[in-house]
């Protein structure tokens, strides 16, 4: 069988969602930790952003990898969802979960919804920050600062500016809560998708995965709320 056929098989699709899902989890975890540098001051945050930018071609390579991961993740997720609708055109009059050991939850049933909102959010987020004032193709002298004699983009100023707006601060918070829901089912699910699960491990991995999702979500939410409520 060709690789393309294998990857589009029911198991191949899970290989893709599993690998891209875990890859994206690592990405959001690192991104969240990076954001926390703002709590050490605007200069620390700008220096961190500058450090990433200084990676040059390596950064582009990582960004290209991220784009590929996102695209495969989204396309696969949508395919699985569409396939599930086609596989049962007429639903039940009455349907409920039978309970344990089922892992069916609001999280597991809403992966497509939380995922699609995350996708839309991603576009707005990139347009506001990465490609916002002072970013690539959008030079803006008022968003340039100098830290320890080095000229760099004043991303911290942009972050403060955006999160002073309630729509931005609370919209961001809401979407991050959806990320927590996505990861509550997602982290455990990815390991099961990759065949790396045993019954004895399931409750532990499910619990730790949900905690990781919660930690990532709360870590992201800390910054907009701290800025909006003038804590930093």
């Amino acid at each position: 069988m060709s690789l393309k056929n294998s990857l589009s098989s029911p198991v191949g699709k899970k290989l893709i969602t599993g690998i891209t899902g875990l890859g994206l989890v690592v990405f959001v975890l690192l991104h969240m930790i990076g954001n926390l540098s703002m709590f050490s001051g605007d200069d620390a945050y700008n220096e961190y952003a500058q450090l990433l930018a200084s990676f040059g071609p390596l950064l582009y390579l990582m960004e290209a990898g991220l784009v590929v991961f996102f695209l495969f993740h989204i396309v696969n997720g949508i395919q699985i969802w569409v396939g599930s609708k086609k596989a049962r055109r007429m639903g039940y009059d009455t349907y409920r979960s039978a309970g344990k050991p089922s892992q069916q939850t609001t999280s597991s049933r809403s992966m497509i919804v939380t995922g699609l909102v995350l996708g839309v959010f991603l576009v707005i987020h990139l347009a506001s920050f990465k490609f916002g004032p002072g970013g690539p193709g959008n030079a803006d002298p008022s968003y340039v600062t100098s830290v320890a004699g080095e000229e760099m983009r004043d991303l911290a100023k942009l972050v403060h500016h955006k999160f002073a707006s309630p729509i931005y601060a609370f919209g961001y918070t809401f979407v991050m809560l959806l990320l927590v829901l996505h990861l509550r089912h997602g982290v455990w699910s990815a390991f099961q998708s990759l065949g790396a699960m045993r019954p004895s491990l399931t409750p532990i991995v499910y619990g730790l995965g949900a905690l990781l999702g919660l930690a990532i979500g709360l870590g992201f939410i800390a910054l907009p709320l701290a800025i909006y409520f003038n804590v930093i």
């Binding site: 029911p10 599930s84 089912h185 998708s193």
Partner: peptide, 28 residues
């Protein structure tokens, strides 16, 4: 024309023989 698995594990909960979804991990 069956759907793909999203790891809801509802199958194990209703299976009259209690077949575990660890079989699905094995299949993968």
């Amino acid at each position: 024309g069956f759907g793909d698995c999203s790891n809801h594990a509802e199958c194990e909960a209703v299976c009259p023989k209690g077949i575990s979804i660890s079989t699905i991990a094995t299949m993968r």
